[in-house]
Design a protein around this nucleic acid. Structure first.
Lengths: 311, 311
DNA sequence: ACGTATAATTGTCCAGGACAGACTATTCCC
DNA sequence: GGGAATAGTCTGTCCTGGACAATTATACGT
């Protein structure tokens, strides 16, 4: 039987805060204040881990740890809703509110077969593009929000991702491969497990007739660079979920940029880039899936203007 | 422009070895021996990082770092080929040798489109069941062996898994869901990333008309137990790749067994169980995919003999 | 041969110190 | 007063060197 308390390694994984940072906060701000096991090692109660998760999210939004460390759980929640906006209106998605609600209900009921059927029918009814833009994307936000406030178990989130992935692949499989515009290598960086982002991008790109090569998730940076060369692609596309640490992402993107020849562009997409911030110009950030066609057009324009002539 | 040398954080990402481990190896074995930047921080030359990557892989195979740290690059390469034993006869798979060779060739050529097409045609030609038993399973062995001896880059292995996954899901998607025999919850334990095993099992089970609920990979044990209850399944099916630690697997399976009601069976499959060893009897180990129909029949027989009567 | 006690190996944790880079506030000059 | 330059604060990451639990190998007795 495992005790509910977590070691520092587990907390690092759960919160995304490095061991060094956890120890430093304890030293400087007095929070977190883990217990110690008989061996003198830090042991974090679950409620502190939850608080850390919240703080971690707020810091990504630009807040400072000093003040957050002393805040109560209620204050943090208030801060989250304040920075993150309303608790997900759900009415924003035009006419698809019912579809979203039905999905959440099926998930809540652990109705795997019903969910499968519902997703499949929705895909066929809307068509792949509208399925993604009007259903999957807002649905991901809903599921993420439900997960963040503890309304969804791990297994329910897994079930959702698995079945949605299945539908997206069904959709992608029916697209006859094109050979237009830029050829794109798709994957995520190490630490980013969320596959749906890659699949949605894959579908949107394939629907534009673009040649896509997907490497799945978590490809080391060096391997991305060499694969880009071997596959002869013009663009490396990366997906980042909201959970990914902004600083880490920028650092790794910088590394990758340095390892790729200048002729290969980097396109970074995903909910991480939804809110504005100072971003380097050598990488193209695509905040919404709707912008993909525009981005492709821009690419073609750039290439026409300045034909491939590396210094 | 970043210099070709890498900081300790980058090396941690690239090799999967923690900062602590890197420093400890340096202290104990004198390798790696990074340079220092003007600020006294470790700076690793690329060749040392490559060596570290090799060592890291060999340690996964069960070798000890003490001896590996002092070895030359050549010795390490030799060790890699040695640990895998013979370079996989390849002739064992009856008439499908050509199919396997073609796949390896396409992978070696980084021909994503050709691979996609080849896999798709093979699936349609053989049919889903023979595709899995006669092609995917031996192919996985080949890819695993090629990867172990360094003949395959990370990105090639990713490409293979991604595209094979795509085909398997295409196949599964065409099966009309059944409701026979035991209902099965499918997933892998935390630490096991290999998705193909789950998908192959899913397909084989679905082809027998069994109701399957897949949670994808890496579901925490507690969540598996609660999900099994909420989904009302009679069997929890888990897949284990050869890379998974045997002891870890058995310990986790014991935990899971304790958390599940006795009426729910555990079926453990995957290449980890291919070689014989002392296995607990409270869990059913399925060493080959071919045995799944037999296992289903056995299940039905057991249930007929002792109808569901939990205390 | 087999099980057990002992020794070596190995990864992770700890404490406390240092410092670069980012951000903030203040000063100073035009 | 506006804007640039300066000093000051905040924060994360890296450093050293020590400790120990868990695993794995070796020696030993029966």
């Amino acid at each position: 039987m495992t005790s509910p308390e977590l070691g520092i390694s587990t907390v690092e994984r759960e919160t995304g805060l490095s061991k060094d940072t956890l120890r430093m906060w304890e030293r400087r701000y007095g929070f977190p204040q883990p217990l110690r096991n008989r061996h003198g090692e830090r042991v974090y109660p679950p409620e502190q881990v939850g608080k850390l998760r919240l703080i971690s999210r707020l810091i990504d939004r630009g807040l400072r740890p000093r003040e957050l460390a002393g805040a109560t759980l209620e204050e943090l929640m208030a801060r989250v809703t304040a920075t993150e906006g309303a608790p997900e209106p759900l009415g924003a998605a035009a006419d698809n509110t019912l579809l979203l609600e039905t999905t959440l209900d099926l998930l809540a009921a652990y109705d795997a077969a019903g969910l499968q059927s519902h997703l499949s029918r929705t895909l066929q009814r809307l068509g792949l593009l509208r399925f993604i833009l009007e259903f999957v994307a807002p649905m991901n936000v809903q599921v993420g929000a439900a997960w963040a406030r503890g309304a969804l178990a791990v297994s329910q989130e897994h079930l959702y991702c698995e079945q949605m992935q299945h539908q997206l692949r069904q959709g992608i499989g029916t697209i006859y491969p094109g050979a237009r515009a830029p050829s794109v290598l798709l994957t995520t960086l190490p630490g980013e497990d969320h596959q749906l982002g890659v699949l949605m991008a894959h579908a949107c790109l394939a629907l534009e007739g673009v040649r896509c090569v997907s490497l799945g998730i978590r490809t080391p940076i060096g391997d991305i660079a060499s694969a880009a060369h071997r596959h002869g692609v013009e663009v490396v596309g990366l997906s980042f979920s909201k959970a990914f640490r902004l600083k880490t992402a920028l650092a790794m993107l910088g590394d990758l940029r340095a390892q790729l020849p200048p002729s290969v562009e980097i396109w970074a997409g995903g909910s991480l880039w939804a809110r504005p911030s100072h971003l380097p110009g050598e990488i193209r950030f695509i905040s919404r899936l709707e912008l993909i066609p525009h981005e492709i057009a821009e690419f073609c324009r750039r290439r026409r203007t300045a034909p491939s002539s590396p210094a």
